[in-house]
């Protein structure tokens, strides 16, 4: 009997990739078979799930309905991402620390200011995954330029803040930019506090990438888009090597 499959190979097999030796082994080894069946279950469920973008937010009023029945003081859902970085000690408002993202609808309607954050997905990928083309309108834009003392990678780049039916997105377009030493990461920058929100990385050679903006980002503060060259060192913080930056303007 062939020795046990490599865990990576078994994962790929569960995804449906061809691997004859591994497949034959799994069929004949009860231990691997059990492991394999569990991975297959995950893959089947994942594929049937519609993916994370198919998860639906309840209406914004629902929390108020719940909160009013708790027999406690009403608890506010925080609306400002800066509160995440610096939970206010008190000050009357009840700010909740540790939130990953605010899930309710933005409260700054009418005060369209600037930028935001999200997870990397190329526009084409977004369309494929969600299966829908969300119409969007540009509400602010920025020309991204090299820093005076930073590296100049040539080319041209711009960023735009777009409003869609599902919230805000940021699109970064770049052409003829030289390749990074590590990889290019896109950030939102709070000019006053040098706070940073990582949006995601720019795939090599990608000319245009759109990032969904999580609700709750204070767009009047996080109004600059920054592109950094990140070394492949696993450190999630900014490398301080800014290659492009620009402030979003309406």
């Amino acid at each position: 009997m062939q020795q046990h499959c490599e865990p990576e190979d078994m994962a790929l097999l569960a995804l449906g990739e061809q691997n004859q030796p591994c497949q034959e082994h799994v069929l004949s080894c009860p231990q691997c078979r059990q492991e394999f069946d569990q991975l297959c279950e995950v893959v089947t469920l994942g594929r049937a799930s519609g993916g994370p973008d198919s998860l639906v937010e309840p209406s914004p009023e629902l929390w108020e309905r719940i909160s009013s029945q708790l027999d406690t003081e009403p608890v506010a859902l925080h609306t400002d991402v800066k509160a995440l970085a610096e939970p206010s000690p008190s000050g009357g408002e009840n700010v909740i620390p540790m939130a990953r993202r605010k899930r309710t609808l933005p409260r700054w309607t009418g005060l369209v200011a600037a930028a935001a954050a999200g997870i990397l997905m190329g526009g084409a990928v977004v369309a494929t995954i969600t299966g829908q083309d969300t119409p969007s309108s540009v509400v602010a834009s920025a020309e991204l330029t090299p820093m005076p003392d930073g590296p100049d990678r040539g080319g041209q780049a711009e960023a735009s803040l777009n409003r869609t039916d599902n919230g805000y997105t940021i699109t970064v377009k770049a052409s003829d930019i030289q390749g990074p030493e590590g990889f290019y990461e896109v950030w939102l920058l709070d000019g006053e506090n040098s706070g940073l929100i990582a949006l995601g990385s720019l795939a090599p050679g990608e000319k245009e990438a759109t990032f969904p903006v999580p609700d709750g980002v204070d767009l009047s503060a996080f109004n600059a888009v920054d592109v950094s060259d990140e070394p492949l060192d696993g450190d999630p913080t900014h490398s301080t090597v800014t290659v492009l930056r620009g402030t979003l303007q309406t």
Partner: peptide, 25 residues
């Protein structure tokens, strides 16, 4: 001086870390 705005500092930003909720959270 590398930037027009305050230069980003290489630090464990609380915001960066809240991108993904850890098991600890």
């Amino acid at each position: 001086m590398v930037s027009l705005l305050a230069p980003p500092v290489r630090r464990a930003s609380a915001i960066c870390e809240t991108r993904f909720m850890s098991d600890l959270d």
